[in-house]
């Protein structure tokens, strides 16, 4: 079928690029706004200043929220990738007895609205003293990130021939060393990309953090929520710009990792 440029495909193209503009413009627009000189948000922004970035980096409140979020996201990435990889390995190499239960529990945190989990954890963590603590945030975010880690590692593990491990074991390696020396290096790119996804899921997670944050410990999304709700200042576009850059870096990292497995 030879490609022909007719009215139909022209209209389709126009429509598609209009939708893409709708998707992308709200994200892109925060970038110039973060450099505007005035105290209020306006478009087009006037002048050029790095003042809002300086304010963000020098504010103790923003800094403590950011460092809490980084700490939580880092620990979440580790917990989710270790627990998720172990569970995936058991499902792919095991006898598949618990497969149905595993799948239901895996999909659960995606299906059940985050508000339900947030409210449930708010009540539960308060009674056991985990509310507003680093372990509390890490536990909650690990549950939210686990499905995505399992999806990325399942894809990789399914491609690793089980007889490679069997060969290592017949040469005397234990199951664990066979995994560590043979299988893990092969699936490592996917494990790392799963960990990157877990990091960004935790770092950007707004709903559970909203309810679990105490007066003292607030994650970055919770601080941003308050700032957007009360007074929209140009510091929000500055932080938004930094977060967009972070997403691009993480996605690019995950993509490079996964394309290494294919080669």
């Amino acid at each position: 079928m030879k490609p022909s440029i007719d009215k139909g495909s022209l209209a389709l193209g126009t429509y598609v690029y209009a939708v893409l503009a709708f998707i992308v413009i709200p994200l892109v627009i925060v970038i110039p706004m973060s450099f505007g000189q005035n105290d209020y948000l306006e478009f087009p922004p006037k002048g050029f200043t790095l003042r809002w970035y300086a304010e963000y980096f020098s504010s103790r409140q923003w800094w403590s929220a950011t460092s809490l979020s980084v700490e939580v996201a880092f620990l979440t990435a580790i917990c989710a990738s270790v627990i998720g990889t172990a569970a995936t390995y058991a499902m792919v190499r095991g006898r598949g007895r618990l497969a149905t239960l595993f799948q239901i529990l895996l999909i659960g945190p995606i299906i059940v609205p985050h508000i339900a989990l947030a409210v449930g954890l708010y009540l539960f963590f308060q009674t056991i003293g985990l509310s507003g603590t680093v372990p509390g945030f890490v536990l909650a975010h690990t549950v939210l990130a686990l499905p995505f880690v399992v999806f990325t590692t399942t894809a990789a593990l399914g491609k690793v021939d089980a007889s490679l491990e069997a060969a290592a074991m017949s040469c005397g390696a234990s199951r664990f060393s066979a995994f560590r020396l043979v299988t893990l290096p092969l699936i490592l790119p996917n494990v790392v990309s799963g960990a990157l996804f877990a990091f960004i899921i935790s770092f950007d997670e707004p709903v559970v953090s909203f309810f679990l944050s105490g007066v003292r410990y607030k994650t970055l999304p919770r601080r941003m929520f308050e700032d957007i709700e009360q007074n929209l200042t140009p510091i929000i576009p500055a932080i938004a710009t930094l977060l967009i850059v972070l997403s691009i870096v993480v996605l690019l990292g995950a993509h490079l990792m996964r394309s290494r497995t294919k080669n």
């Binding site: 925060v30 929520f225 957007i228 576009p237 977060l243 997403s247």
Partner: peptide
């Protein structure tokens, strides 16, 4: 993969 808060803001 970018923050819901960023998009809402």
């Amino acid at each position: 993969w970018s923050s819901v808060l960023v998009r809402t803001a």
